[in-house]
Design a protein around this nucleic acid. Structure first.
Length: 105
DNA sequence: AAAATGACGGTGT
DNA sequence: TACACCGCCATTT
């Protein structure tokens, strides 16, 4: 486990319930703006699905991508809605559910 | 050490 | 709005 990946997990873990963060945002918080792809890989190699809320990480346009956990993208979407994330059709309403990065104020 | 890969992002068609 | 292309960084082979 490299430092960057570890950092990504740390950040992903502090995403508040009912909110979502984009890969790019996490990459920036991790200290490497633009490394959205690297973040994606970190999620893919995510060792602790339930421990790390990787399902709260979405694309810049609110689209959900993969999931290393048990279910699939549908399960993720349901999970998010259940937590309070507003989802419009197949995408997340970033305007209301995007993590303000306020570090759980 | 170099090349290929991927849960991205932005721009172009 | 949907699909295709190029550029981005970290990880893996």
């Amino acid at each position: 486990m490299k430092s960057f990946t570890k950092k990504v997990y740390e950040i992903t873990r502090m995403i508040p319930k009912g909110k979502v963060a984009t890969y790019g945002q996490i990459a920036e918080l991790a200290g490497s703006p633009g490394a959205s792809r690297a973040v994606g890989m970190a999620m893919h190699t995510n060792p602790d699905a339930p421990h790390t809320p990787c399902h709260r990480v979405v694309a810049s346009d609110g689209s959900l991508h993969g999931y290393s956990g048990e279910g699939d993208l549908e399960s993720k979407r349901k999970m998010l809605e259940k937590e309070g994330v507003i989802i419009m059709g197949e995408k997340v309403d970033l305007a209301k559910s995007l993590w303000d990065k306020q570090i759980t104020k």
